[in-house]
Computed example of a mutant assay.
Amino acid sequence: MTLRVGAHASVAGGVHNAVDEQREFGGNCGQIFSHSPQVWQDPDIDPDNAAQFRDISEEDDIGPWVIHASYLVNLATPKDDLREKSVASMQREVDAAETLGVEYVNVHLGAHTGAGVEGGLNNAASALDDLDVPEGVTVLVESDAGSGTKLGGDFDHLRAVLNRSAQDLEVCLDTAHAFAAGYDLSTPEAVEETIAEFDDVVGLENLACVHLNDSKHECGTNKDEHAHVGEGLIGEDGMRAFVNHGAIREVPLVLETPTEDGKDFAWNIRRVRELRE
């Protein structure tokens, strides 16, 4: 089986450039933003660039791709205006994914900001149900580090939204987020226990993608800061056990690791390949 590992790539100068950048990283799958994630903005996708993106990805066997939703999206919000903006933004993302031939749009559930966990989960499921998701596109709900009133830190939150939404949703598990939320991944035994718990609660059949990131902070701190693969507090033993676990071997791994200490996405992708047995 082919190891699918890649990183978040830039669409600067045209979305087709992300494929070239992914090739330079040494990746064979990947993730993009369709626009700046810090603002409410329509995806700026030129039809010719979209065709190039699709064609080059197919020619070079790079995929699957994931579009990561804007950081401003908050599906769990009780505020009507923010909900409306969030749903509209997500609709534009799933439509962009259809245009690009991208399989997945990834989104955090967001923060309930006082609505309570159950209220926030209901809000998120309801907001997702308002989407008209094109055929061939799947929305992924991402695990979270769980700080403040953010939802998705507990696997139960992911399961609840899958149950309550009428959409055919799947899940993206972020290793740094899960670790920060209290799911240990630092030893082979811990990896086995955490993956078993994920399977019991969410179901491995619903795991479509992994954000493979090490963590700069201890397990259970709810602090979301990524580290290079094998060099954070998950560490080499945990990362090796995770990427070689039978349940993970066919799941695409997308890196959101930092660029620092002379190490970039290409270094981290090579590291994952070295750890894979």
Rank of each mutant, 00 (worst) to 15 (best):
D132A: 02
A208C: 08
T194M: 11
D200K: 15
V133A: 00
E192C: 03
A176E: 10
L151W: 07
G203F: 03
L169W: 01
V210T: 11
V171I: 13
D174G: 07
S165L: 03
E197D: 15
S143W: 07
E189M: 08
A190F: 13
A125K: 08
D144E: 14
G148V: 06
T149M: 01
S186V: 13
E192K: 14
V133W: 00
A196Q: 15
S147C: 09
L162W: 11
V202S: 02
G203A: 06
L151V: 10
V191K: 05
K150L: 05
N163P: 08
G146P: 12
L131F: 01
E197V: 07
D144K: 04
A190S: 15
G203N: 10
F198V: 04
R159I: 07
D174H: 11
D199N: 13
S165V: 07
A190T: 15
N163L: 09
G203Q: 10
N206W: 05
D154L: 14
V191D: 07
A127T: 02
K150R: 15
E205H: 14
D132C: 01
S126C: 04
G136R: 07
G152W: 06
V161L: 05
V141A: 01
G182M: 13
A124P: 04
A124R: 03
L169N: 01
A196F: 08
V161R: 04
S126H: 12
L169Y: 01
D129P: 07
G148S: 09
E193D: 15
L204K: 08
T194D: 11
L185I: 12
A180G: 14
S126N: 12
V210N: 07
A180P: 12
D144T: 13
N163G: 10
E135I: 01
E189L: 09
L162H: 09
S186L: 09
A166K: 15
V202A: 02
L158I: 14
F198N: 05
D154S: 14
G153Y: 13
L173Q: 09
A125I: 04
F198G: 03
V202D: 02
S126I: 03
A196E: 15
A127P: 02
L169C: 01
E205P: 06
N206G: 06
L169K: 01
A166N: 15
L169V: 01
F179L: 11
Y183N: 13
P134N: 05
F179N: 10
E135C: 01
L151C: 06
V139R: 00
V202W: 02
E142G: 03
E135K: 12
L207T: 04
L173N: 06
G153Q: 12
V202I: 10
E205K: 11
N206V: 05
S126T: 15
G203E: 10
F155A: 07
N163F: 06
V161K: 04
G203I: 04
A208W: 02
V137K: 00
A196I: 05
V139A: 00
L140W: 00
G203L: 05
